[in-house]
C-alpha cells in the first residue's frame, strides 16, 4: 500500500515537473547580450532571427538597455579578442554583467542562458561568466559539449532550473523559438 502511494506521488511529481518544463514560456521582445564578449552571441542573434523572434542584440547591454524588454537572453563565454575589441578588462565585463543581471532581477525580467560554444567556452576564464549567468537564469539551453563534466546539469539540478541539452548549435534554434511560442 505504502509502495503504491509513493509510486503515485512520484508519478505526479514527475508529471508536474514535466508540465512545468513544457509550459516554460517567455515573452517577447527579447534582449540578447553577451557575458564575456565571445562572438557566440552573434550566432544566437542569427538563430533568433531565423526563428522570427522580436529580438535585439546589444553586446554590452547595460541596465538601461533593459527598458521595454520582457526576456533577457545571455550568451556566456570568454573571448580575449572580444574583450580587446570592446576595449575592456575581464573585471569590467564581470561588473557589467553583474549589474545587468541585478537590474533584470529587480525588473522581474527572466534570464535565459544560452551556452553554445562547447568546450571552447568552458573552464579557464569562461567559467566565471558561465557560473554567474547560470546561477541567475530561469532556463538554460546548452550544447552538450559544454556540459561534458556536468557543470550546467549540476547547477540546474541544485537550483531547480529547467535545462535543455542539445547536440549541435543548429539544434538550439527550435527550442529557443519554442520558449516564446
Amino acid at each position: 500500500m505504502k509502495t503504491g502511494i509513493s509510486t503515485i506521488v512520484t508519478i505526479m511529481i514527475l508529471f508536474l515537473a514535466g508540465s512545468s518544463l513544457l509550459a516554460q514560456k517567455f515573452e517577447q521582445p527579447v534582449l540578447i547580450s553577451s557575458a564575456g564578449q565571445s562572438a557566440d552571441v552573434k550566432l544566437v542573434k542569427m538563430l533568433a532571427q531565423r526563428q522570427g523572434l522580436n529580438a535585439t542584440t546589444v553586446l554590452m547591454a547595460k541596465p538601461d538597455d533593459l527598458t521595454g524588454f520582457k526576456t533577457l537572453v545571455i550568451v556566456p563565454g570568454f573571448s580575449s579578442k572580444g574583450l580587446g575589441a570592446a576595449g575592456i578588462s575581464q573585471q569590467d565585463e564581470i561588473e557589467r554583467v553583474q549589474s545587468l543581471i541585478k537590474a533584470a532581477n529587480n525588473l522581474k525580467i527572466p534570464i535565459v542562458l544560452m551556452h553554445i560554444g562547447g568546450n571552447a567556452r568552458r573552464q579557464g576564464q569562461s567559467d566565471s561568466f558561465n557560473q554567474l549567468v547560470a546561477d541567475n537564469s530561469k532556463y538554460m539551453l546548452v550544447v552538450k559539449q559544454g556540459d561534458e563534466d556536468g557543470f550546467f546539469s549540476s547547477i540546474a539540478s541544485t537550483k531547480n532550473i529547467p535545462l535543455t541539452l542539445v547536440e549541435k548549435i543548429a539544434e538550439t534554434a527550435e527550442p529557443l523559438g519554442n520558449l516564446f511560442k
Binding site: 565571445s38 562572438a39 552573434k42 573571448s79 572580444g82 575589441a85 571552447a120 543548429a170
Partner: peptide, 15 residues
C-alpha cells in the same frame, strides 16, 4: 558543425 567540426567565431578586434 553539421559536418561534425566545431569552430568558434571570433571577431577581429578593431583596435
Amino acid at each position: 558543425e553539421m559536418a561534425g567540426l566545431q569552430f568558434s567565431p571570433e571577431t577581429s578586434p578593431m583596435n
